[in-house]
C-alpha cells in the first residue's frame, strides 16, 4: 500500500513539473502555432533569475517568484517582437529560429553566470516533509503541486473569462477575421508569447531548488514539454493537464519497474506511436479551423 501511494505521489510530482513547464508551451504552441524550442531556455532563465535574486539581493523565495515571472515574460516579449513575429507563416522555420535564440540565451548565461552548477535554497518553511497516510511527502513537492494547480486555474480564467482571453481565442480561430473586427492581433500574440515565457520562467524558478541549475538544463525540459503538449492535443488546456498526468504517471511507474532511462525511452516510443495515429493529440478541442 505504501509503495503504491508513494509511486502515485512520485507520478503526481513528476507530472506537476511536466505540466508546469508544458503550460507555457501549450499556450504558445496552441494559440500561435509557434514551435518554441527556446522554451527550455526560458525555464533556464527563470532558474538563473531566481538564483541571482536570491544570492545577490537576498530576496525571499516567494518574492523572487513574482519578479521572475515578469523578468522572463519581458525576455519573451523581446524575442517575439524581434524574431518570432516574422515567422508566423513559416511554422517549420520557427523551430530553427527559436533554436538559434536558445543557443544565444544559453551561451549568454554561460558567459555571464559561469558554467558551473548553481544552487537555489528551498525556503525554510517548505524544507521539511509532511506525513500523509503514513508516507512522508516533502512539503516542497506539495507546494509545487499547489502552485501548478493555481497557475492552471489562473491560465484557464485568463483565457476563458477575460477580455484578453476572448481576443486571444478570436485571433487563434481566425486571425484575419479578428483583425477585421479591430483586434490588434500582433499585440495579442506578443502578450501571449510573453505570458507563456513568463510561465516557463516560473517553472524554472520552482524547479531550481530541486534540480541543479546549469546553462544547458533547458534542453531536456523542452523535449519533454513538447511531448506533453502534442499528446494532450494542441490548444486544449485540459488535454495538457491529462497528458502530463499520463506521461508523469507512466514514467514513474516504468521507472519503478525498470529504470529511469529505459522508462523515459519507452514513454517516448509510446508517444511516437500515438502521434502516428492521433496527430492532433488525445484531447482535441472541437474548434473548426
Amino acid at each position: 500500500m505504501d509503495i503504491v501511494l508513494g509511486q502515485l505521489f512520485t507520478g503526481l510530482s513528476i507530472g506537476s513539473i511536466l505540466l508546469l513547464v508544458a503550460l507555457g508551451l501549450a499556450i504558445i504552441y496552441g494559440s500561435m502555432g509557434v514551435i518554441n524550442l527556446a522554451h527550455g531556455e526560458f525555464v533556464m532563465l527563470g532558474a538563473y533569475s531566481t538564483w541571482l535574486l536570491q544570492s545577490a539581493f537576498g530576496l525571499p523565495f516567494l518574492a523572487c517568484l513574482v519578479l521572475v515571472f515578469f523578468m522572463v515574460a519581458f525576455a519573451g516579449w523581446v524575442v517575439e517582437r524581434g524574431v518570432v513575429r516574422f515567422l508566423y507563416y513559416r511554422p517549420l522555420d520557427t523551430i530553427l529560429a527559436t533554436w538559434g535564440i536558445g543557443i544565444i540565451l544559453q551561451q549568454a548565461v554561460r558567459l555571464s553566470a559561469g558554467a558551473e552548477l548553481r544552487y537555489v535554497q528551498t525556503p525554510e518553511a517548505l524544507a521539511g516533509s509532511i506525513d500523509l497516510l503514513g508516507i512522508a511527502i516533502p512539503s516542497y513537492r506539495l507546494f509545487i503541486l499547489a502552485v501548478t494547480a493555481g497557475l492552471l486555474l489562473l491560465t484557464w480564467f485568463l483565457v476563458q473569462h477575460t477580455e484578453f482571453g476572448m481576443k486571444l481565442r478570436a485571433v487563434t480561430q481566425n486571425r484575419e477575421m479578428a483583425s477585421c473586427y479591430g483586434i490588434n492581433s500582433s499585440r495579442v500574440f506578443s502578450l501571449t508569447f510573453a505570458f507563456g515565457s513568463g510561465l516557463a520562467g516560473l517553472a524554472g524558478a520552482l524547479v531550481a531548488p530541486i534540480k541543479s541549475v546549469a546553462p544547458d538544463m533547458g534542453t531536456n525540459f523542452v523535449v519533454d514539454a513538447f511531448m506533453v503538449v502534442v499528446v494532450g492535443g494542441v490548444g486544449s488546456l485540459l488535454g495538457t493537464v491529462a497528458s502530463s498526468g499520463i506521461l508523469g504517471g507512466s514514467t514513474a511507474g516504468l521507472a519503478f519497474l525498470l529504470n529511469d532511462t529505459l522508462a523515459k525511452a519507452l514513454v517516448f516510443l509510446a508517444v511516437v506511436v500515438l502521434i502516428r495515429f492521433r496527430p492532433r493529440g488525445l484531447f482535441v478541442d472541437r474548434v473548426r479551423r
Binding site: L96, A97, L111
Partner: peptide
C-alpha cells in the same frame, strides 16, 4: 564562447 553567440545570431539572420 563568443562564437556560440555569433553562431546563434547568424542562424536567426539566415532563417529570417
Amino acid at each position: 564562447d563568443t562564437w556560440q553567440l555569433i553562431l546563434g545570431a547568424l542562424f536567426i539572420l539566415v532563417v529570417l
